[in-house]
Design a binder for these strands. Structure first.
Lengths: 345, 345
DNA sequence: CGCGTAATTGCAATCGTTTGCAATTTTACC
DNA sequence: GGTAAAATTGCAAACGATTGCAATTACGCG
């Protein structure tokens, strides 16, 4: 605090870059410096203060690589975003990005750094082992199972500190945090039917198991209520999606009066296309989305959607991962979805 | 390829975790294994193949920490997001997240990993030195100057491999990539005035220099055209912003007929509040935003806004950083904004 | 077949910290 | 003041890969 010249890092005659350098100046051994800087060890208070002062004066900071090598832990959590089906789909997807933001918050708070890696499994089927085996991370969070369910399962058998955002299936072996997609799908379908829809369509790719589960839930309800439902595969890549949806809409015009969109992003595009076609929502066609993105309350009409609690998801992911790092073989965490009734259905 | 049992990583009697282990099996020295796995060295082709086969069979991967320590480079680029004024403002901001996504793409493509760190300068004024001095990254990209302009300047003097997303100011020393905010502000104001606005308001926080420059540009045009303009400070934190904007709108009702929103996020909220108040856009009130987020073309009415080319920005950031890593003291890169005329003004 | 050169491989130092263990200094107490 | 116990500090061996230099082997050619 009473440091008269904290700024002259540059001026200091001798560059001190290693513990040894600093040790020489302080007149102690490197070991002592290490302990002093680590803080909690058993070093004489006066010695520590002196060392800390010198360190501050020279802007010294111990080399992390060496430290991590020696301690065999990195303090870094890897976050992988597999882009399975539609390349470039998710990295620009608001939902995943928001989740990522929350993850960054949570991890930082717990003192971990976050290493982000976008992977294209199709190009490199070894992606997960490589990330884990790289020795760069203490644990891994995978955002989205994409079409990599099996691979993740395999890895999970031999690698504890991994948690995945995605869908939970009966008997799966990897630890997952995610919304109950099937239930969400049910809520959506129930709502559509309750508000008068007689014939439903699911807009989205049914390959990814998250989406498949949403569709399955909707299908179950539709079957029970004696309502038809069909799936219209829709990609998420920003360029094609508009055109594709427009096509679908033309195709189903008059035949379908209730749309369950796999994500809000799709739903919002839908709303836009419908507005341009002069089709009234919700009178002629009802729509329910999924996610409850910030935009969804601001569309016209405001979107009825199934909410995923992203912040809770991020907290869960980090929480479980830390427990796993501590050796605990945690259970999965399934979050309840919540129907946000607004005006589109 | 002709590997009869590539799967039995687990079964392999002896765990091979180090170069030395592998070397023993292959009957060569660790040095040779290192060279063989590195690929490009001068190792006998047959020896290399044998080593690679063994490595594959045992799922061996060299320890990164050791490698990085020895080679004195990490292959990791740090990406810092300083949350200056409004904590939690930017990490959930669509614009920054999209930029981050593109950065991840670009960096991955160039073979770098990305370490993400969210920092709250107010809590830790040493954030930048700490990130750089951590020895964890070869270079740093800072997303947004926030209120940390001075600190960044200081650091830039002694640290070459840093590039910042943000605003460019006459004579600044750090290398920046960003949109010409002042010009963007001018475009916005010109558009508002051209479409008939007689009295303008700027909605946004004028503290961050990016926003300040946008406001300055608008003010310049307003002054030249003899039109009034006022700034209405608006925070970006998701919770308060709606209420705050509503308040502003009540306050200026009738007095202002043209709004320049500092970001599309603000503009979209504005549109929503106005719709609820029954104020017609653009007839009674015109609005121009900034960013051109994906949502902006889907609002009602579609938002006229100033477009920032995020992808080009990310490419520029990475490109300049790599040149700086190679020792080149690069110039800043200023991208031209583009007015996207839609229906809100 | 012998020798010179080129192609491979092995050796051993190095990157900078951490940490168990031993050595030393303090402190406490009789 | 002396001795035992406690508190500090120093020593030196890891951590695991890389790489300059030296040593060995292979190859070409007269």
């Amino acid at each position: 605090m009473a440091d008269p010249d904290a700024h002259n890092h540059e001026e200091s005659a001798t560059k001190v870059r290693t513990l040894a350098d600093l040790a020489k100046i302080a007149g102690v051994s490197p070991g002592t410096v290490s302990r002093a800087l680590a803080g909690n060890s058993l070093v004489n208070a006066k010695t520590r203060e002196k060392i800390e002062a010198i360190a501050r004066e020279h802007g010294f900071r111990p080399n992390q690589m060496a430290s991590k090598l020696r301690r065999q832990k990195t303090g870094v959590i890897g976050v992988a975003i597999p882009l399975g089906h539609d390349v470039r789909q998710q990295i620009s997807d608001t939902f995943f990005m928001t989740l990522l933001g929350h993850l960054a918050d949570e991890l930082t708070e717990k003192g971990y750094d976050l290493m982000l890696r976008r992977v294209i499994p199709a190009q490199d089927e070894d992606w997960l082992d490589q990330f884990i085996g790289s020795g760069m991370v203490d644990g891994v969070i995978v955002i989205g199972q994409s079409d990599q369910f099996e691979r993740i399962e395999e890895v999970a058998d031999g690698y504890l500190p991994m948690v995945v955002w995605g869908n939970h299936q009966e008997g799966q072996r990897h630890c997952v945090v995610g919304t109950d997609n099937r239930l969400g799908g049910k809520l959506a379908a129930e709502r559509l039917i309750a508000s008068g829809a007689k014939s439903l369509a699911f807009l989205g790719d049914t390959q990814p198991i998250e989406f498949a589960a949403r569709y399955a839930g909707a299908k179950e309800v539709a079957a029970k209520m004696g309502v038809a439902i069909r799936a219209l595969p829709t990609h998420l890549s920003p360029e094609r999606t508009g055109e594709e949806i427009a096509e679908h809409l033309r195709e189903i015009e008059g035949k379908v009066d209730g749309i369950f969109a796999a994500t809000d992003t799709i739903a919002v595009t839908c709303l836009k296309e419908l507005r341009e076609s002069g089709i009234d929502v919700p009178r002629e066609l009802k729509i329910v989305g999924f996610d409850d993105l910030p935009i969804s309350s601001q569309t016209v009409p405001p979107l009825t959607t199934v909410r995923q609690d992203i912040a809770a998801g991020a907290r869960g992911l980090v929480d479980l991962l830390l427990r796993r790092l501590a050796g605990d073989d945690t259970e999965s965490l399934i979050l309840p979805p919540r129907l946000m009734v607004r005006d589109s259905a």
